[in-house]
Design a protein around this nucleic acid. Sequence first.
DNA 1: CGAAGCACTTAACACTGTTAAGGAGGTGGG
DNA 2: CCCACCTCCTTAACAGTGTTAAGTGCTTCG
Lengths: 214, 214
Amino acid sequence: MKLERQAIIDTAIALLDEVGLDKLSMRRLAKEFDVQAPALYWHFKNKQELLDHMLVAMSPAELRVPRPGQAWDDWLIERSRLQYGRLIKHRDGARLAAQTKPTEDLFPGLESMLEALGAAGFAPEEALRGLLAISSYITGSALEREGARSPAAEAAETPETAEPAGQPDGMPDMSQYPNLVAAVGAARDPDAVFDYGLNAIVAGMRAELEKRGK
Amino acid sequence: MKLERQAIIDTAIALLDEVGLDKLSMRRLAKEFDVQAPALYWHFKNKQELLDHMLVAMSPAELRVPRPGQAWDDWLIERSRLQYGRLIKHRDGARLAAQTKPTEDLFPGLESMLEALGAAGFAPEEALRGLLAISSYITGSALEREGARSPAAEAAETPETAEPAGQPDGMPDMSQYPNLVAAVGAARDPDAVFDYGLNAIVAGMRAELEKRGK
DNA sequence: CGAAGCACTTAACACTGTTAAGGAGGTGGG
DNA sequence: CCCACCTCCTTAACAGTGTTAAGTGCTTCG
């Protein structure tokens, strides 16, 4: 395989899916190209730069603008879902996003989105504020999702059938937490939780727009 | 200083503020106690366990329940702000939260909150869904905030030099991004951005409650 | 033919988390 | 009194990390 910038990025992403972020080392990545680790430093000045570009490669370039005739809120939700999907599609994708500061490669996409929202009636500051809130929410949700499992979901993992066996060691006494037990179902479907908050933020933006429209 | 579990956690947090997450090593922490690094492994089975407890120590134990007479939404917002504040108060606090899965130490707090929301009329699943969304939003926002700076704010400075063999982008020409430039002010005040999304999610919960109340 | 630059190698540095084995200090029991 | 035991820490070491410095073939060009 040829050793070029984009090839390295792609292979690194594939390797990330395979071994996870912790085991993704320069030496391990170099091995994928039958090359010594320092060779990578000719193409990237350090590991962080490589990670940055991996994240950019994961971020959707599509949907920077609504489809023809699509309402701004439908488009925003669709795009956010897509971005969320990209993050959780790759192993440790959110953790990667967490330790990577955004590069200026995102500027063009951001600009297009601001323009689209501007066409819908938003002032640039309003639009950016909404986009930032959504962006934070997306990475936070993806993070919580891949955090092995959310605490409530972990509680749900106790098989109902194991009840007579008593509490397995390490498992706390769930009867202390009746509300939590009753609520566990909500955490079972992380996509629903994500949509819930996403819709709320978009609704907030819509309210702002309507109020100002009057 | 005595070498006890809680003392280690507290010192580790202080050290985190001082040197940052990347430089927070077991050897460095041990030095704070005039002790060799492996001594810490008598108190914690590994570094991750220590990190977990650091995060718990940062999470607010107060406000698990509304003040007397306080409306549920005011309480929820206040508590969320508090938690957000705790995260950004410590250096790399959000990054720490990002690489730490929640432990069951959070169960009691969660249970109290579910109970409080239940008293306000929420079904357990609704309440948990809202809390999870808010929690995601908090860590995501804190993360984005400490990510040095938001992309737009970064655009405001830009003392960068050109890349060697990179894309022909060269120096970012900000005039290409008029909307972004116009919106930069919104990113200047991250607290306002945070409040914006937080209010939106809480408003979503309120709407759900009112709809069901009719 | 020689210079220049690219793309890589080998060797090494300064770290990291973590384990194994052992030793000092105190406590309790026979 | 002495030996065993437990707690808490030490020293030594392992396997691995990101990263830099110096050197080596290879291609391309003047």
